[in-house]
Simulated scan of single mutants.
Amino acid sequence: MPRRAYPSNSLSALVRKVFGLTQADLARFLHIKRAQVAHVEAGRSTFSREVDRRLTVLLEAQPVPEGRAGAWPKPAAEPAGALRREPLEKRLKECRYRALVIRYELEKTDKRLAELAHRRRALAALRAYLLPADGSIPWMPGDKVDVAYVRFWLDTLDADTAAAPVPDPTERALVELRLRLLDAEATALEGLLADLPPAPAV
C-alpha cells in the first residue's frame, strides 16, 4: 500500500515551493536521487553537509519583496511571433462564404415577403371586385354565379396567405447582425493580410 504524503516543513520543501521545483528537479541540482529528497522531506533522513551547502545556494537566491534591493527582476516580455498568411486567408475565405450564404438566405426571405405582400393586395382587390360592397355582381348576364362559393374560395385563399410562414423579426435582426460581424471580420483580416509580405510563388 503506498505511503500517504504529508506536507513537509523541511528546508528542501521550502526551496522547492519558492522556485516551483519538483523533487526530481531539486535532486538533479543537488546531484542526488529523487528518493533521497523524498526521504529527507518525510523526516526519515538528512542531507550530507555537501548537499546542504548546495541547498543553501538556492536558499540565498529566494526572492525578497518586490521593490526592495535584491528583488527578482521582472521577466522580459516574450517577442510576439510573426503572423502567418495561411490561417488568415483560410479564415477570410470562411467569413466570405458564410456571409454569401446569409445574403442568399436573406434575399430569398425578402423575395418571399414581397410575394406575400403582393398576394395580399391582389386578393383584397379581387374580393372588392367579385364581392363588391354594394351587392352588385360583375358577371355577364345569364352567367350562373354561386356567390357563397366565391366567398368561400376567397376566404380559403386569404386563410392560406395568412398561414404562410413569416420570419420572426428578432431572428432576422440576429441574422443581419451576424452578417455585419462577418463583414467586419473579413475587413479586419484583409487589413492584416495587406500588411504581410506576399506568399512565395510556388
Rank of each mutant, 00 (worst) to 15 (best):
E50Y: 06
R34K: 15
R112P: 00
L26D: 06
A61Y: 12
L21G: 02
G135Q: 03
A188G: 05
G70D: 08
S10L: 01
A24H: 11
T156H: 07
R103P: 01
Y129F: 15
A24D: 13
W139K: 11
F29K: 07
V15H: 02
R68M: 13
K93R: 15
R112M: 04
R98V: 05
G142T: 10
R119I: 01
L126T: 10
R121H: 09
R34Q: 15
R112Y: 01
A69M: 09
V150W: 06
A184C: 00
D195S: 10
D52W: 04
P63D: 06
L58P: 02
D134V: 11
D143Q: 13
R28F: 07
L58H: 00
V101H: 04
L181H: 12
H39Q: 14
E105N: 11
L59K: 09
T22Y: 09
T22N: 09
W153S: 14
A71M: 10
A124Q: 14
A5N: 12
V40H: 08
L59C: 00
A128N: 05
K90C: 08
C95L: 03
L92I: 06
E94Y: 05
G70I: 02
P75M: 12
D168V: 02
T156Q: 12
L189K: 01
K108F: 08
G67H: 02
D134M: 09
H118Y: 10
E66Y: 08
P87F: 12
H31Q: 13
R4L: 08
R178N: 10
H31I: 08
V18A: 13
R16Q: 08
R4K: 12
K33C: 05
L130K: 00
E60A: 11
L100I: 01
A188I: 01
A35P: 03
T109W: 01
Y129A: 15
G81K: 14
L106W: 08
A77H: 08
S8P: 05
E171P: 01
T161Y: 03
A128R: 05
R91E: 15
L157T: 00
P75V: 03
A125R: 14
S8N: 03
E86W: 08
D134H: 08
V40D: 03
D168S: 06
R49P: 15
A24Y: 04
R3Q: 12
A71C: 14
S8E: 05
G81Y: 04
A199S: 13
E115Q: 11
G142W: 04
S45P: 01
T187A: 15
A38H: 12
M140K: 15
L196A: 05
L174G: 07
V37D: 04
A163M: 04
H118K: 11
P138A: 01
S10Y: 02
S10R: 07
K17V: 00
A69W: 09
D110E: 14
R178H: 07
K93V: 13
P2E: 11
P87W: 07
G67I: 04
A24Q: 13
P73K: 11
K111F: 00
P7D: 06
L113S: 02
Q23H: 03
